[in-house]
Design a protein around this nucleic acid. Structure first.
Length: 793
DNA sequence: AGATAGCCGTAC
DNA sequence: TACGGCTATCTC
């Protein structure tokens, strides 16, 4: 008798443990750890998906009985176990390493085991359920397709026995296949009588007789009717071959050879490949050729028969980057990013799982790629906050990369022009080995000249957004037929609707935030809860007609540009213009083929783009991110400015950068102008030390939410005192305080921040805090725990 | 989550 | 006392 330990797919505290199920005898040799199963669960024995994480041997149970002499022997209990209803996989979808990783993850993410496991699977493999309802007369209907009223009606009928229910767990899995045609009965085909009128059929016969092997249905050079004729008469056979949905990308790529490394790059490369003992922090200024180092390191490990994972921030996972990897490694590359459909993601996942892909390039979740024999893991732009997931299993890709690298004895490379203070501090302490690239790889490319424009002196000018200097520079570049990138810091600049008469701003009824204007749908939307309403004609407060739109930052700037520089061709890139698939790529292609003079956009244009003809970068508002109530505000601003400055002068033309700001004396802006990471690091570390923030202290945030404000306040104070009681004197507990946006989704949010260095009881205490939601009086209370939170706003 | 056992209130 | 709704409890 074989007993499987199954984690069921019900993300709840009460079900967050392994349940034991009997493996039916005929499946005994088929099941394995890491497979998905359907198991009967609860009183109604409804089918629930689960994942086998272990087996229990009944032999051991018998032995345990002997030793422990329990009142109810373990082997007896096993008789009452339910059986696994169905095995969903022919081979495990999770590797043993991934199961181990999920265990490790749980110490820091304060989430359910099943959530950790599911984060590692492509969403297509997370099947959904439906109920099939059968009426007495045999009519069938699906629960999911009923209206609310019908559901109530059906429930009554089910209760009275007029209808029966069957649970069906439908798996969304689907594989894309290519249909191939191959000729059969070739001899007969030669003698087939075809009427003289059927010229196409005759033509097709000749074609088929000469055809060697298979041809895909898509490429078959005859019409469907002709094809059908030969199929129906048994001369053609259709076979299906599984394929990858992203296959087509590979067809258009030109292969690319390794470039020669300069001495700095070579040193970095040599150091990385010689040892995997410590993680490396590769600190290289923009344009210093980090990517080429990555490519050659990966190549090195591929030659040794190993595999590689390359993480890139989602936002810079542009074709410009991915194509470089595909060009170097061809079909050995799998790409994982959110732009892919579920089907495409599944295809890439299978390509990895089967071992066909040896290099994975992807965003955060690609750290879970089921690779074997990993030689190197690279995290580019390691300071990016998008490596930390800001929902459910709140993992940081960097932490998991450390674990996986250790597991595989692989190299870990963290690369950045402006490393996070955490990583840089570790490098200083010798936890990471620091490698530097200080020269631009293209030696003729000079570092851009950066100027600060004090916007306080511009108050009386015509435009509030453009300084005279920036406008002059732009005119100059336009005349020289050079291109310009303009960046607008989106934060704090979103569009809203305000009454000019009384100052009323339309706010979300569920959240304490003004609604954002969406010109494309002509609605006001809430970015937090999704609430949507029409744009009012009259002010809802004073009935005045003087209600005015304050269009999206970028939109507004675009309009202004049209007035100030009517001759300039402007491309806008922001959330609105990149909604559709590949829109991102199209805009960039247009800009690189010089169909526009100015690329105007939000932070998304700061990352990794390389346009040789761009000689001017203008930052319209450098400060909006600076004054946010977040201790990383300066770090973020500095990193962003450094990054966007790197977009200028990538080739032999000298680049210029203009930073417009109301805080010209702020160190983040000053040091970005000087392009001096070292100084910034020192300065910022000082600040972090004085205020006991990371990297000197670790942080954990506890977020408490409830629809009633008094309850949140009361409960969060209770939690804070629980923390104070259980943690040492040295831990600093901040709060509770209301979140910057105190109410969203009709819930009030309060937060507590714990700063600590060594707290042995922290994990246990935080789990205790989570347990509070289990008490009946706290039923509607939501508690979220975020270790090392990245965003406080 | 979702089914159920147990508890209390009201209608007959 | 019978039925219905509501809540606490458990799920191998």
């Amino acid at each position: 008798m074989k007993i499987a330990k199954v984690i069921v797919d019900i993300p709840l505290m009460q079900t967050d443990k392994a349940f034991s199920y009997l493996v039916p005898t005929d499946l005994e040799n088929l099941v394995a750890i890491g497979m998905r199963v359907h198991v009967p669960f609860g009183k109604g024995n409804r089918l629930v998906q689960g994942i086998i994480i272990d087996f229990e041997d009944t032999k051991n149970l018998a032995e345990a009985d002997k030793q422990m002499s329990l009142s109810v022997p373990m082997s007896k209990i096993s008789e009452n176990l339910k059986e696994i209803a169905e095995v969903l996989d022919l081979e495990p979808v999770l590797t043993e390493e991934q199961l181990w990783l999920a265990d490790e993850m749980r110490h820091s993410v304060f989430s359910y085991k099943i959530s950790c496991l599911k984060a590692m699977l492509p969403s297509l493999l997370n099947s959904s359920y439906d109920k099939l309802l059968t009426a007495a007369n045999g009519d069938e209907s699906y629960w999911s397709q009923l209206t609310e009223n019908e559901k109530i009606n059906v429930m009554k009928q089910v209760k009275s026995g007029e209808m029966t229910v069957t649970y069906i767990a439908k798996s969304k899995e689907n594989k894309k296949v290519i249909k191939f045609l191959s000729v059969i009965n070739r001899e007969k085909l030669k003698n087939l009588e075809i009427s003289k009128a059927a010229k196409k059929r005759e033509e097709c016969r000749q074609y088929l007789l000469e055809l060697n092997g298979k041809i895909s249905q898509k490429d078959f050079p005859f019409s469907r009717e002709v094809m059908k004729y030969f199929i129906d008469n048994d001369f053609l056979e259709i076979s299906e071959v599984e394929t990858s949905r992203t296959q087509s990308v590979f067809d258009a790529i030109h292969f690319d050879e390794a470039k020669e490394l300069n001495d700095e790059q070579m040193l970095a490369f040599q150091t990385i490949i010689t040892s995997s003992e410590k993680p490396y922090l590769l600190e290289g200024i923009t344009g210093s050729g980090k990517t080429e180092v990555y490519l050659q390191v990966i190549e090195h490990f591929l030659k040794k028969g190993k595999t590689a994972i390359m993480l890139v921030p989602e936002i810079s996972l542009t074709p410009q980057i991915t194509n470089r990897f595909i060009a170097r490694f061809g079909e050995k590359v799998a790409i994982m990013h959110s732009g892919l459909s579920d089907g495409e993601k599944y295809d890439e996942w299978r390509k990895i799982r089967s071992g066909k892909a040896r290099v994975v390039v992807g965003a955060r979740s690609a750290i879970f790629a089921p690779m074997e024999n990993i030689g190197v893991i690279i995290i580019d732009e390691e300071h990016e906050t998008s490596y930390k997931q800001d929902s459910n299993p709140r993992y940081h890709a960097r932490d998991l990369a450390l674990l996986r690298a250790k597991f595989h004895d692989a190299c870990l490379v963290l690369g950045s022009a402006t490393p996070s203070l955490e990583s840089r501090a570790r490098a200083m302490r010798g936890v990471y080995q620091l490698l530097r690239l200080t020269k631009r790889a293209n030696t003729s490319a000079l570092l851009p000249e950066v100027k600060i424009v004090d916007m306080r002196e511009q108050i009386n000018d015509k435009s509030a957004n453009f300084s005279t200097l920036l406008l002059d520079k732009m005119r100059e570049k336009l005349e020289k037929h050079e291109q310009i990138i303009l960046m607008l810091n989106r934060r704090g600049y979103s569009s809203f609707v305000m009454c000019r008469e009384c100052g009323y701003v339309v706010e979300c009824p569920n959240c304490d935030i003004s609604l954002t204007l969406h010109m494309d749908t002509r609605t006001l939307n809430c970015h937090y809860c999704g609430h949507q309403e029409a744009i009012p004609q009259l002010c809802p407060n004073c009935q005045s007609r003087k209600i005015r739109y304050y269009g999206s930052g970028t939109q507004k700037i675009q309009e202004e540009l049209a007035e100030l520089l009517p001759e300039a061709r402007v491309l806008r890139m922001d959330v609105d213009t990149t909604k559709t698939k590949n829109a991102h790529e199209k805009i960039l292609n247009k800009f690189s083929s010089y169909e526009a003079d100015i690329l105007l956009g939000t932070q998304m244009i700061a990352k990794g783009l390389d346009f040789p003809n761009v000689t001017l970068v203008g930052v319209i508002n450098a400060d909006t991110g600076l004054n946010l109530p977040d201790f990383r505000a300066s770090e973020r601003s500095f990193q962003l400015l450094m990054q966007v400055a790197g977009r200028a002068g990538r080739a032999d033309k000298k680049g210029e950068v203009l930073i417009q700001t109301f805080n010209p004396r702020h160190y983040a802006i000053q040091l970005a102008q000087e392009q001096d990471y070292e100084k910034f690091y020192e300065r910022e570390m000082n600040f972090r030390r004085t205020l006991s923030y990371p990297p000197y202290y670790f942080t954990v945030q506890v977020l408490v939410s409830h629809k009633n404000k008094e309850v949140v306040v009361k409960k969060s104070y209770e939690i804070a005192s629980l923390l104070r009681a259980n943690l040492s004197e040295k831990a600093k507990i901040l709060g509770p305080t209301a979140r910057p946006i105190a109410r969203t989704h009709n819930l009030y949010h309060y937060q507590i921040l714990v700063k600590y260095r060594f707290e042995d009881d922290l994990e246990a205490t935080l789990n205790q805090v989570l347990d509070l939601t289990q008490e009946r009086e706290n039923k509607d209370l939501r508690i979220m725990i975020d270790s090392e939170p990245q965003n406080f706003v």
